[in-house]
């Protein structure tokens, strides 16, 4: 994990710098206290930078846990993520009742379940159950999309 820690440390350091820089964008109002709205963020940015440097130093000295990471199914994760993002983007134009069963069937298929009963059952059953709970019982205004007028 040493190389990973080194890269994460560098990333965190860059983020701390970005966050510190952003704190100067805060406009201080008239009705503020002594410390102002930017003090605490700057304190956090400095602390994070310190920890990031410690992580970098540790990985360079080889003190990190050298245990190998478990293997990862990158493609499956990326496909799931892509499908999920597509679903969120399609939710407004298509509407909940059209996009959700397609998404559910897609994920079930992607994760390797191919029986028509499982695919259709999950797609229709979960869409209906969530619709009943959120749109009917909790009165959430789910996007209607194509079915609306």
């Amino acid at each position: 994990m040493r190389r990973a820690d080194l890269l994460i440390g560098i990333g965190l350091l860059a983020f701390a710098a970005f966050y510190f820089r952003q704190s100067f964008e805060i406009t201080v109002g008239f009705a503020s206290d002594r410390l102002g709205p930017a003090f605490f963020p700057r304190l956090l940015a400095l602390a994070l930078a310190g920890c990031a440097l410690a992580l970098i130093a540790r990985s360079l000295r080889g003190r990190s846990d050298p245990a190998p990471l478990p293997s990862i199914r990158t493609n499956l994760l990326l496909w799931t993520l892509g499908l999920t993002i597509a679903y969120v983007l399609a939710l407004t134009p298509l509407g909940y009742l059209i996009a959700t069963p397609l998404y559910l069937a897609g994920i079930v298929w992607l994760l390797g379940h191919r029986s028509p009963v499982g695919l259709a059952g999950t797609a229709i059953g979960v869409t209906a159950a969530l619709y009943l709970v959120f749109a009917q019982a909790l009165k959430v205004l789910v996007p209607v999309g194509l079915l609306g007028r």
């Binding site: 909940y96 079930v108 979960v126």
Partner: peptide, 28 residues
């Protein structure tokens, strides 16, 4: 079956996030 469960939970999470304040921002 795991694919059925994971798909259901993902859909529940996304719709639940949307329901927090009726907007997409929380979903992201």
């Amino acid at each position: 079956k795991r694919p059925l469960l994971l798909a259901s939970i993902l859909a529940l999470v996304l719709v639940g996030a949307y329901s927090i304040s009726n907007r997409m921002f929380e979903v992201w």
